[in-house]
C-alpha cells in the first residue's frame, strides 16, 4: 500500500498506532487491578454491613475483622497507583474513580464507627476521618494541585462522605431497633454538621451536586427518628 509521493509522511499512522497501543496496554493493566479491587471492596461491605445489627458492645470485634479486607484493598490501591503513574492522572482516572469512592466510603464508615482509633473495649463512634487521614490510610497523596501523580481527589472524598451520611441515616433507624437510643442523637448532630459543610460549597451541575442535594432528606429522616424518640420519652437524658 504505497502512498502517493508525499501525501502522508512515512510512518505517520504507524507512530500514532504505537502510542495508542501503549495506552491500551496501560488500560488493560489497570482494568485487571480494578476488577480485583472491586471484589475486595465487596468483601469489606460484607463485613461492615453487619454493623447495622451489631450492638455497640460487640462493635470493636467487628471493626477489627474489617481491617483485613481493608488492608487488602489498600494494597491493591498501591498496585494501581504504580501502574496509573505511567500516564497522566486524569487520563484514566475515570476507570477507578467509582471504586475509589466506594473504598473511601467504607473507610469513613469504619472510621466513624470507631475503627480508626480502636483500642479494644467499647469503641467510641462519631469521628470523621478527614481527607488527609484517609490518604494516609490509603498510603496515597491527596488533592495534588501541581504534581501529576496518582492521588485521592477532593470529589472522590466528598462522594464518599455523602455515602456515609446515607449509610448513617440507615444506621440511626437500625440503632433504635437494637434499643440503642444514644446513637441516633450522635448521628443527628453529625449529619447536620456535614450538611452545613456541603452548603457552603458552590457545586456545579454535576453528579456531586445532584447527590449533595439529597443530603437534606437524609438529615430529615434522622430528625424524624429523633422526633419519634422524644415523643416517647426515649431520648437519653442529658446530665
Amino acid at each position: 500500500m504505497a502512498a502517493p509521493s508525499g501525501l502522508i509522511a512515512h510512518g505517520l499512522f504507524e507512530d500514532l498506532q504505537a502510542r495508542t497501543d501503549e495506552d491500551t496496554a496501560i488500560r488493560d493493566g489497570l482494568r485487571d487491578i480494578i476488577q480485583t479491587w472491586e471484589k475486595q471492596n465487596r468483601s469489606i461491605t460484607y463485613v461492615l454491613s453487619r454493623g447495622h445489627g451489631t450492638p455497640i458492645a460487640k462493635l470493636s470485634e467487628l471493626l477489627k475483622s474489617a481491617e483485613e479486607p481493608l488492608g487488602k484493598a489498600v494494597e491493591t490501591v498501591g498496585k494501581l497507583a504504580e501502574v496509573a503513574s505511567k500516564a497522566p492522572y486524569y487520563k484514566f482516572n475515570g476507570m477507578w474513580s467509582r471504586q475509589m469512592q466506594d473504598l473511601v466510603f467504607q473507610i469513613l464508615f469504619w472510621g466513624w464507627l470507631g475503627g480508626y482509633e480502636n483500642g479494644g473495649g467499647e469503641v467510641k463512634s462519631g469521628r470523621l476521618m478527614n481527607i488527609e487521614e484517609v490518604g494516609e490510610y490509603l498510603k496515597v497523596p491527596v488533592n495534588l494541585k501541581d504534581e501529576d501523580k496518582f492521588h485521592l481527589a477532593i470529589e472522590e472524598y466528598l462522594h464518599a462522605l455523602i455515602s456515609l451520611v446515607e449509610e448513617l441515616a440507615r444506621l440511626a433507624r437500625n440503632s433504635v431497633t437494637m434499643g440503642e437510643y444514644e446513637r441516633p442523637v450522635l448521628i443527628n448532630q453529625f449529619v447536620k454538621d456535614v450538611l452545613a459543610g456541603f452548603q457552603i460549597l458552590n457545586l456545579k451541575n454535576d453528579s456531586l451536586r445532584r447527590r449533595s442535594d439529597s443530603l437534606k432528606y437524609k438529615v430529615k429522616d434522622v430528625e424524624d427518628i429523633i422526633y419519634d424518640l422524644s415523643l416517647r420519652d426515649l431520648l437519653p437524658k442529658k446530665e
Partner: peptide, 20 residues
C-alpha cells in the same frame, strides 16, 4: 454551634471554585 468540619469544607470550596 459552627460545624467542626467548616475549616475543611472551606478549603474544599476554594479548590472546587478554582476548578470550576
Amino acid at each position: 454551634p459552627i460545624s467542626p468540619y467548616m475549616a475543611m469544607f472551606e478549603e474544599f470550596r476554594k479548590e472546587l471554585d478554582e476548578h470550576h
